[in-house]
Amino acid sequence: MKKLISVAYYTFVENIRNKIFYVILLFGIVITTASLLMAAISGQQNLRVLLDFGLGSIEFFALLTVGFAAVTLILEEIQSKTIYLVLTRPVSRSTYLCGRFIGLLLAVFCGMAVMAMIHLLILFLNEWHFTLRYLLALGLSGEKIMVVGALALFFSLFSSSAVSSISFTVFFWILGHFSQEINFLANRSKGVATKVVGKMIYYAVPNMQYFNLKDFWDVPNFLGRWVAVSFIYGIFYTAFCMLLCLWLMRYKEF
């Protein structure tokens, strides 16, 4: 456990120093400028626009950070040979992999928390009334980021190329948001092969709509038990991806 914490800690510090700070700075500038413009051009809907713009930006910047950082999380260490420094010590491959992933997630979540604070500050300055739904939407965005991070790590170990890993991750991100439509098309399809392929994609690809509470904000009476299950689904999907990563890592030759 101590080894896991050590690996996670140095990954956290490494990421904070390298990427997260700049992302937050960029977010701060974007959201502040956008809030001034949005208030001027969206008429009576300025609060709605401000809320959506902020939550969307938090998720987008977190996705950018986790996507690029997870893909290079192990690949860079292999290319620079620094992985030997860790693995030649009594640190197992699984401890190393989990530690790196946890450290990365902590760094991205810290970034999201700071971005959310900037966003909330701007919302409160515009006389927005706080609701618990905001924290739930943010939490589910975090789950989405966790799943995407695990997928990006899996693809990076699987393909050993940063570009193809990022492409696969983005492809899964889009498929994940499109899975309801894929299911709809599969149900409508008359061909058995199309139906089977559609259903396979629907069940295998993580359904990102389960984490998309920010899009269901105005849907009446929509908060339900499924929100709690979404958290469980995200955690287990990530765990499954990590198991696949461990399996790949076990046979990886450096």
Partner: peptide, 12 residues
């Protein structure tokens, strides 16, 4: 906006 899961932002 639909494919990237930001329908509301797209509507905005």
């Amino acid at each position: 906006s639909v494919l990237s899961g930001v329908r509301r932002l797209g509507a905005d």
